[in-house]
Design a protein around this nucleic acid. Structure first.
Lengths: 179, 179
DNA sequence: TTAGGACATGTACCTTGGGACATATCTGAG
DNA sequence: CTCAGATATGTCCCAAGGTACATGTCCTAA
């Protein structure tokens, strides 16, 4: 049930349409909290029904912008401070790593190299955003400060995974004979 | 659809019952690929229906141990080498971090301290397992070697998150006036 | 002027995951 | 002997996520 709070949080920055929110979810949140537009529109409808958001304006092309209400804002804040954090991490790459012993050495090296490349690239993207932010490119609003903190987590996580994939390539294959 | 392959991978190490597998999923995989027993039993039933696993033996207390079949083994290997890795990462703590600007400074510090503690603890647990493995406590089978690699990822990820949460506590609150 | 493409919203369906609940079987402590 | 607790398997339902598909609106370039 975090999509709900994700939407409320984004709307706390200012009014936005489902389309805007979907774009933000794919651009900014793509790698940490994916969400598709059908779910976003549906959830916005529910939130409006519960009075947590309201239609701010209707624009061209049937565009409907939503604004967060007082109770919506209270709800995000309640979630942030009172609801337990869900630390679930469902990482397929790590699940796969448990089964590396089933792969032959060549496939494994290829796999790890590809993974390392993938993570390095992402880490680099986040690093560039962070550099731009630190140069002042995006101003110093509280919102961008928080985004900067999130980006830092992205940098550290993806760097850690990239380093791990590099390291894993250096782990010698097992010696089944000694077991 | 990774539960399926997670089960096949674990069964590739040797026969096990649904109960055994559920335990392994909560113990070893708890933080990287959670799975509840109802889903595991259901999936084992499907896998048996498709001939990817078969009942190896029936024991006391209605215990049914499953063994992976040739085609089951082929299927895990196919998955490992031919199917694209799903890099989806759904991290609620990072989603929350986007909205830190909505929290007051005191709540945020408390939150970050708790997060740092949580991740440090997990990292430490993984570090201890790694140390035991490196001492040779679990032998040198290919399976435990792979587990060691997975554990290394856990160490690095949780350490990165712990460091991040520590670092975030030092980030000065935003200056809304300058924006 | 008309067709393609971006903008914008939605419905329908299917799969996956989580939680509640039910039940059978065996062991060991008192 | 009996009852608590661990072992072991399962059903059922709901919530959440993903994909495919459908539709309407506006702009712009050929």
């Amino acid at each position: 049930m975090s999509l709900r709070h994700g939407l409320l949080g984004l709307l706390a920055e200012g009014p936005a349409s489902g389309y805007d929110l979907a774009r933000r979810f794919t651009e900014v949140l793509g790698s940490i909290w994916p969400a598709q537009h059908p779910k976003i529109y549906a959830e916005l409808g529910k939130l409006a029904g519960e009075g947590l958001v309201e239609v701010e304006s209707e624009g061209p092309r049937r565009r409907k912008a939503y604004r967060i209400t007082e109770s919506g804002l209270a709800e995000v804040k309640r979630w942030l401070t009172e609801v337990d954090v869900d630390h679930t991490m469902r990482l397929q790459p790590l699940l796969r790593s448990l089964f590396f012993w089933l792969m032959d050495a060549e496939d494994l090296q290829k796999h790890l190299a590809a993974e390392a490349g993938f993570y390095s690239k992402l880490a680099e993207q986040y690093r560039q955003y962070a550099a731009a932010k630190d140069r002042g490119d995006y101003g110093y609003s509280p919102q961008t400060q928080s985004l900067r903190v999130t980006v830092e987590a992205g940098i550290r996580l993806y760097t850690a995974l990239a380093d791990w994939a590099e390291w894993a390539q250096t782990v010698p294959p097992a010696k089944p004979s000694t077991d």
